[in-house]
Every structure is written in structure tokens, then in C-alpha cells.
Design a protein around this nucleic acid. Structure first.
Lengths: 169, 169
DNA sequence: GTATGGCGGTTGTTCGTGCAACCATGCGGT
DNA sequence: ACCGCATGGTTGCACGAACAACCGCCATAC
């Protein structure tokens, strides 16, 4: 391995070429811009920050509209403590309730309330329409596919590397 | 296509179809996982959080290794106040210095110090290699292109919608 | 039965960030 | 020259999230 100290040879020097840089930084910038915009809108229109929205969303999709705390945490990619607090707030607002787990006294479920369900459907409309206009509208059909397959390939490794907390459940 | 291109209940109901969902949620999850992993590593190896790294990076690329605060803020997508604090920390650590602007007494530059430059090159090696293995390695050449072009199309609108602060400079 | 280790969830603390309010400076009009 | 008003940057404050330490409960071994 000749460590070509300077210049264009990429992988070894650690330099990214033009295209790689575009692909990578674009991801960062797009995410930052979009999530900021969407979060702001969601909060403004429904008083619901993006992370809260996602919690409600996952719950709504789950069977019985309830999930174990740790599953929820890994779904929304939050630390356990982070989720505890978030659920605190949502429970305080009446959008979900904690429910103890019959089969495991340690466990707790978060369960959507009717109010939470309602709030979600209200928020979902505006949110998804924004996702469309800000993001999906710029994508062609195959690009959609490409993105999807890229994420699928990237995620396993990334998730492992991130090792959100440990919670192997 | 059995489930034809546009389908059951698309835009009007606000529902996303399978592919759209994959593309969108994947973006969220990949970003979350990757940035968490990279941030952790960077901080562990060099005591340098990801945002700080980006500031140094932009500075290094800028002419004279200095930038106006507001330009820097919009580059790293941070609010003005956020950047002020971040620059505070970096200055405290000796990685950059503030420099007043001759042509505009209100303005301030952030300018890389030799120490900052050095820190950056050190960090860049490990960081970019992680970006490669965690992200770029999973992409084919055309996918790289697709991503790049997608970001370019998405960004202008997103940046506008985000309206990070106001700072029109 | 009791002891040990692992897991699920909550709490104390700290840190980074956004928003709003605030100077100070620049710029245009009159 | 003066006055308003926009702009670049910094501060007070509040909030959301991570980390580490903790407690209670499960599972297994003895």
C-alpha cells in the first residue's frame, strides 16, 4: 500500500471524490433541512414535534395500538431514557397511556388513546402532504426504488454500528 | 403492475405507498443511525463532535480558511445562536479564532488556527473511512449519481422551507 | 430455597440547540 | 445630518436527548 500522501487517489488517503461528496453531504443537508422544516410545521400546526409524531405513528401501526417501551425506543431510534421522557410528555397530553405487562412485570406498554389516534390522523394529513411536496415530488419512480434498496443495504450495518443502546429485545 | 403505479389511496388521503414509505423512512433511519455512529466515533477518537467537525471542514475549504459567521451557520445548517455557541467552544479549544471584519464592523469571521487545521486532518482520516465503510461502500456508481442528483433537486426547496433562521447572506 | 447475572424502565445531570429579545452597525430616504 | 429599518452577532431561557447510575423483576445455577 503506497500511502500516496497527497492528492487524488481516494480510498487510501480518505479523500472523497466529487460524486461521493455530493452523495454524502447531500444526505446530511437534505435530512437537516427537511426534518427541521417538517418538525417546525408539525409543531406549529398541531403542537406535535416530529419525534412525538413518530411515536404515535409506530403505535398506530402496531397490533393493538400498543408497543413495549424498548421496541418503541429502537423504532424511533431514541435512547431508553429519551423515550421514557417522551412518553411522559405524550401521556401527560393524553395521547397515550402506560399499561403494565401481564407476562413480564418489568415491562410496560405504551398504548395509543383515542385522542392520540385522532391527533395522529389529523397530523398525518399535513405531514405527509409536506413530505410529498418537499421530498417525494422530486423523485422519479426508479429513483424511489433506488433509494429504497440503498437504505436496505446500508441500514443493517449502520444500525449495528450505532448500537442505539443495547436492548436486544 | 398488479398494485399499479399510483393506486389505492395516494396523495389525497395522504397515505404513502410501500415504495414511498421505504424511500422516506429509510432516509430518516439511515441518517439517524449513521450520524449517531459517526458522531460517537469522532467524539471518541478525537473529542470532536460531528457538528464541530463540519465547521472545521467548511472553514478548511474556504478561502483563507475563514468564513463569516452567517455563511458558516447556513453551511452547517445551524441557527445563528447555535453557531455562536459552537464557535465559542471551538475557540475555547483553540481550533479557531474570531476575527473582526474590516469592511463591516458588525461582522465576524471564524478562522481556522493551525491547531484546528491539524485536528481536522487527523479527524478527517478516520471519519471519511467510516463514511466509506458504513455508507459509500454500499453504493454502486450509478446509485451515487442518482443520490447526488436527487439531493440537488430536493435541496433548494427544502432549504427554503426550513428557513433556518433568516440570514439572507 | 437462595444467589447471581441480565434485562426493562426510570431518575439525576449535563450538554447542545432553537427562539426571542437584545445591541451595534450599516444603509437608504428625506 | 438625521431618522428609521434591516442585518450580523450575542445573550437569557427553555426544551429535548444522551449517559450513567439506579431499582425491580426475570432466569438460571447452585
Amino acid at each position: 500500500m503506497s500511502t500516496t500522501t497527497t492528492i487524488p487517489s481516494p480510498a487510501e488517503t480518505g479523500t472523497l471524490d466529487e460524486r461521493e461528496l455530493r452523495a454524502w453531504r447531500g444526505l446530511l443537508r437534505v435530512h437537516a433541512s427537511l426534518s427541521k422544516a417538517l418538525d417546525a410545521e408539525l409543531d406549529r400546526e398541531h403542537g406535535l414535534p416530529l419525534t412525538s409524531y413518530e411515536v404515535l405513528l409506530y403505535l398506530a401501526e402496531a397490533e393493538g395500538e400498543k408497543m413495549r417501551m424498548c421496541d418503541l425506543a429502537s423504532s424511533v431510534i431514541l435512547s431508553r431514557s429519551g423515550l421514557t421522557r417522551l412518553v411522559d410528555r405524550l401521556e401527560r397530553d393524553g395521547l397515550l397511556v402506560r399499561e403494565s405487562c401481564a407476562s413480564d412485570a418489568r415491562g410496560a406498554f405504551a398504548k395509543l388513546t383515542p385522542a392520540g389516534h385522532e391527533k395522529l390522523t389529523a397530523a398525518r394529513a399535513t405531514h405527509l402532504s409536506s413530505v410529498r411536496t418537499l421530498f417525494l415530488a422530486h423523485l422519479g419512480a426508479e429513483e424511489l426504488e433506488v433509494l429504497g434498496s440503498v437504505w436496505d443495504r446500508v441500514l443493517p450495518g449502520a444500525a449495528g454500528a450505532a448500537a442505539v443502546d443495547d436492548c436486544g429485545c
